[in-house]
Amino acid sequence: MLEIGSGGPNAAMLAHLVGPTGTVVSVDIDKGVATRTRTGLELLGLTKSVEVVTADASEPLGRGVFDRIMVTVSPWSLPETWVEQLAPDGILVVPLQIAPGLRRIIGFRKKDGRLVTESTVPGGFVPLQGSGLFNPASALLTGPSGKPVAFKFPGSEVPERFGVSDDVLATDPIDAWSGVIYKNRTIWLDLLTYLLIQPGACAMEAEEPADRGSDMSFYPALVDGTSFAALHRRPASESTVEVGAIGKGPDATRLTKRLADTIAHYGARHRGAEPLFQWWPTGTDPGDVPPSVAVLPRPHGTLTIGWLGTGIG
């Protein structure tokens, strides 16, 4: 088993999981972390079961292939070496960055060279460092409260059409509603995933939520030129909320309707369906990728997302 991102306790638990006949390789780019891990494993008498390596895990380790790979840092992409070092039918567990501000812990199984979802749960870790480090392009503004508002995009550059300004943030908001209802304190993980992979989507991070237009607003947003629409919610009853959109700018009416309609579409066609994540390494024949999925190009391959039995539609 390979652990990418060391620390100690997890490597020790993995050593017990693989048993006396198995081995664990734990790799970390930080020499201090690797040293601490070795010291802890020595105190536990587990140095024969766990090899600690100081290296950039995005590069080949020269340790052959592994039946299982567990990643305890959040990458934006899956380096080719991870796929190559995973045995056929092996499992890779990774807290993948799906979009800026959104991470999901995904269990992938290797099938015919690609990776296919086995399971997924909410969660994430610190970003992957080294050659795999990803810093999303961002535009930093100041909201009416005087506090920062950042738009973060799923690429290395801010889109050329982006024109939201401090003056736009200071205008009156417009809202629209979807009719989609959730119980209070529900985790909207699949809805957030669906919204953040739409064309023009980004993460709108506001230190003061009301700078988006309401203190009931939330970070996924659609941006087009000088206008934006962010996720919004309002009480539907004592125990439920309705999800909608709130926006600002000269085209806010259209954008808020578009976002609210997207939420309604998700609620009608995809809510309750498990998203299917697949990773297609560089060199995959484009004809192999299903047409009814969201396609997210990444540095070392392509991530696709569909909803089982429904496609992305």
Results as ranks from 00 to 15, higher is better:
P75N: 09
W82E: 02
E118L: 15
T54V: 15
L128G: 00
A87S: 10
H16Q: 14
T54S: 12
T37R: 04
L96G: 03
M70A: 13
T23A: 14
G45S: 07
L133G: 00
S131L: 13
F125S: 14
G143I: 09
T21Y: 13
V24S: 08
G132V: 03
I69L: 13
G40R: 12
T120W: 10
R114N: 01
G101P: 00
S77D: 15
V50K: 08
T117L: 13
R109Q: 12
G19R: 13
K110A: 10
T81W: 02
S74M: 10
L78D: 05
P136Q: 03
P60T: 05
H16R: 15
S145I: 07
V73G: 09
G124M: 04
G64R: 05
I69T: 05
G40C: 09
T35E: 14
T21L: 13
D30A: 14
P75M: 03
A139G: 00
I106N: 07
L86D: 06
L43W: 07
V93A: 09
D67E: 15
A139S: 07
S138A: 15
S138R: 15
A137Y: 02
T47D: 02
L96C: 07
V52R: 01
G130P: 07
T54F: 08
P148Y: 11
V53Y: 10
